[in-house]
Each structure stands twice: as C-alpha cells, then as structure tokens.
Design a binder for these strands. Structure first.
Lengths: 269, 269
DNA sequence: AAGTGGTCTAGACCACCAT
DNA sequence: TGGTGGTCTAGACCACTTC
C-alpha cells in the first residue's frame, strides 16, 4: 500500500495530483488505462468514494477521459481552435492533420412561426413567408465527439441546402455552391457545464466544462447568413482568439497579428 | 418529507433541478440563503452526501455561491465582459453600473534573467539590461472577487509604474500618464478549473470553472506593451467577443457590429 | 455552544461491459 | 460471469462560522 498522506490537503486531491504527475511525467502516456477505482482505493488505503473523487477532478480538468460508462484513460492532447479565424472548425482541424467529421442529428426546414424571437432577430427576418433551415450536428475530431452545433440558415439564401452532404463542412458548402464568404461575426461566449440532454446526444459525460457560443455570422455585404448555438468541450479543446480595435486594422497590423499568432502556435507544439 | 423520486435520473440531479427551478421561478431570489445540507437531506428523505452533490452541481453552474466555508446563497446575475473591446474590465464594469476594484497581491520589478521565455518573447525583449514590472491583482466587482490578473509591463515604457495606485484601472494609468492607447491584442483562451493555489489567493472555492486568457497587447505602432495571464470566474461572468476578417473592417462594418452587439446586450437584460 | 460545511469511511445495489 | 462505474446510505470527525 502506497503512503501519500500529508496534513491539510485533502486526500482525494493528493491522489489526483499524484496521478496528474504520472501523466505529465509520461509514466502514464496518452490512452493508457487508469487503474480502476477499487484498485486505487486498495493501493492508497482509502475508500472507493475518495478514489473516485480524485478521478473526477482529473476528468473535469481534461487529463482523463471516461469511455462509455466504462473505464478511464489518459486523454490525448487538446485540439486547437481559433475562434477568430474565418476558417471554421472543420478546416482548422484538417490543417492540423486531424480528421474532422460530423454526425447529423437534425436537418429540417422550419416556417417563420416556429422560430424563437432570438433566431428571427439574429437572421434579420421579418417576412412571415420565410423559411429557415435548422441543422443540428455533433462535430467530431478523429472520431471523438468534441462539439455540438445547433445552427439556422435562411432558406432563401441557400436553396436546397439540406440536399447536400451535411456531414461535410457547411461553410465549405456555402462557399463552394452558394458563393458565400463569411466575413465577420458577433459571438457571445459562456462557460457552462454540459447539460444531461446534450451529453446524451454527444455521447459524453454530463457536467464536463464547455464553452457555449452564440454566433451571428455576416457576409461581406453585411447580411446575416447564420445564427448558431455551439457547445464545445472545454476538456478537449484549447481556444485561440485575436481581437483588435478597427483602427489597428486600418493601420495594416494584420501582418503583426499573423506573426504573433504564429508565435503562440509554435509554443503550443 | 417531499417526494420527488422518479426512475432513471439520479436523485442528486433531481434535487438540483428542483432547486434550480425555484431559483429561476424567483421563489429563491438572489442572495437568498439555501437550506443547509442536513436540512435538505431531511426534507427530501435522502442522505447528506446526496444533498451535497446536488448543491455542488448548482455551485459549478453558477446558480449558487458558497461564502467562505459557510452557507450557500443564490447567486447574483452574471457580469458581462466584452473580450474584444479595447476598454478593459474596469471600464466595462463601471459603464454597467458596477463598482470595479482590485486587491494588489504582488508588485515588483524583475530583471531580464528572472523572466520566463514566454514573457520575454511576448514583450519582444532581447536586451539583458531590461527590467519588467510584474503585477498580480485580484479584480473585484461590487467587492466580489471575479478575476485574477498576472501581468508584465516593460519598465522602460512605463517608468515608476509601481508608484501609481495599482488598485485603479491600469489601462487607465497607461492612457492618462503614459499616453499609451491599447490598439490590439492576441489572446489565447482555455477553459479550466480553478487551481487550489489561485482559489486561495482569490478567496473562492477551488475547482470553479474559469476562463484563462494569455494576452499580448499592442500599441497602435505595433509595440507589445503588456503580457498578461488572466483567470476569470466562469460562474460569475458572461463573455462577449467580436471577430471579423480584416476585409470587413475596411468595408466599414463597424457600425453593423455595434448594432448586433446592442441586440445581444438588450436580450441579456 | 450549536450548527455548518469539508472530508472520509465501509459498506450496498444496480446496470452495463468485457471476457 | 465477474468486474466496472454510477449511485446512495448512515454514520463519523474536524475546523470553522455564527450566535
């Protein structure tokens, strides 16, 4: 039986730190199987509930992932996603050598009446004859579910959108077949815990920390063409964002940004 | 004894939902005191550990706050913070009618040798004679700790910076006394759980969900003047961000943004 | 002094998964 | 079928807050 008890710091936290150190030191490499809760309890001479509390911390911190309702494994490094890049998640994953995918949950056409006021307002719709496409997808990276995307598109801008292969990049479809180039967006971000309902749909654990984004996307001629509510797993994704006041854009600091961003990305390697 | 057991959904989650509903319905208004864990256990006919699990969910979701190591109260609505606004947290809180404050934790001048490579690189320092100011503060809103700010400033740009009142807005000081206008930044965002060490400094519960930001800020002439590592409480803050490709700025879509942002803010009320 | 949250135990039962 | 995670219980002790 290993002995790690020291005063003051709770045991479950000490056990979590010990396991975290083993992960960071490479003793437990990515995808290594974590000992079962009962094994940990015996090894450290603690109760199973205490061992479980330790694992739960590491799951929430993203160091460990549970598969199904089965055992826990050391997590792979986080994916990187630039919130301010016009290229969407799909393109960014592909550029990073990760296989992006999507599982279609819902694809339907809704009449104006069925829209929430928020959606209608965000898409600047006031014609009661209008229809809107509603698409819900689980986004995956190397087959792993990493985000849920609940999006709305004005039907008159993208006729027969639902006939395309909606497991591809939707922004790619808009660009290729409809000539729509996303030029800007307004996003609202909230940190939250994954809802039981969404967790069920995504097939991951409830209560994982997530980044929720409500996004209003515009074309270059200032027309809103998408309203979306995205939920990203915070335990699997590292987010990047660039911000600036308009003046600095006019001063041509785009290059500076690119340099600085390259620095950040180089460091993350 | 109240009866709320139904099949399938775990009891602690049902109790959490019940309390959440009472909060949303206004039966438990902001600052109302939550029943003690033992009281809840008795009322619902469950064990104290189960009642405690229910409360923990609501604390992490930001609906409930624990004060000290004492009882739990219904949380006030979240503060709003626009990550892409050049105005910092201080100014934004003030505009929203909230009293911003800061508690100084550390204020020191460091030689080049003491800097981590990341700090030196972010500030574009290569002169080994250089000094850097290092300031750590706990940011508060209406007296409540909401963020921790760990920032570095090149000393040659801001001589005697430490002599100013560092519980004021630092950006305000830079602007007023040094004529430095922040023009842009590159930020890296990560969702994480609050570290025991930082939780201690901030005086809040460990493991709260947070937004960590590493920020490199630039003046209009592209000189980096700040590198900062901020930790924001996700349970108390709602974040907003605007993004766009440079082209849309040149096309003059700033007004559009302002309109869209106003919409978002109006809805949040 | 009484009450409270924070921690911990040693069991238990169940549904599900891998073998 | 045996092991696993998910849940739940009925206690316990401690440090601290509140009164």
């Amino acid at each position: 039986m290993a002995e790690i008890r020291t005063p003051n710091r709770p045991i479950y936290r000490q056990v979590a730190e010990q396991i975290a150190e083993e992960i960071e030191a490479g003793i437990l490499p990515a995808d290594a199987r974590i000992s079962s809760e009962r094994e940990l309890a015996e090894r450290y001479g603690i109760s199973r509930m205490t061992a479980r509390a330790a694992i739960n911390i590491l799951v929430q911190r993203g160091l460990i992932v549970r598969r199904n309702r089965s055992r826990a494994y050391v997590a792979q490094p986080k994916f990187r996603f630039d919130l301010s890049s016009p290229g969407g998640l799909h393109e960014q994953l592909r550029k990073a050598g990760v296989e992006p995918g999507a599982k279609l949950i819902t694809a339907e056409m809704l009449p104006y009446d069925a829209l929430s006021p928020r959606v209608a307002q965000a898409l600047a719709l006031d014609d009661e004859e209008t229809f809107v496409y509603h698409i819900v997808r689980v986004r995956t990276a190397n087959g792993e579910p990493i985000a849920l995307e609940d999006s709305y598109f004005p039907a008159h801008l993208f006729p027969d959108l639902l006939d395309f292969n909606l497991t591809d990049s939707i922004y790619g479809i808009l660009r290729k077949y409809f000539g729509v180039e996303p030029a800007g967006s307004v996003q609202e971000l909230e940190i939250s815990l994954l809802d039981a309902e969404w967790a069920e749909i995504m097939g991951v654990a409830v209560d994982l920390p997530t980044l929720e984004i409500w996004r209003q996307a515009f074309t270059a001629d200032n027309a809103p063409f998408e309203f979306a509510h995205d939920i990203y797993r915070g335990d699997r994704i590292l987010f990047i964002a660039r911000t600036a006041s308009p003046e600095s854009f006019l001063a041509g600091s785009g290059l500076l940004w690119q340099r600085a961003l390259d620095n950040l990305q180089a460091e993350g390697a």
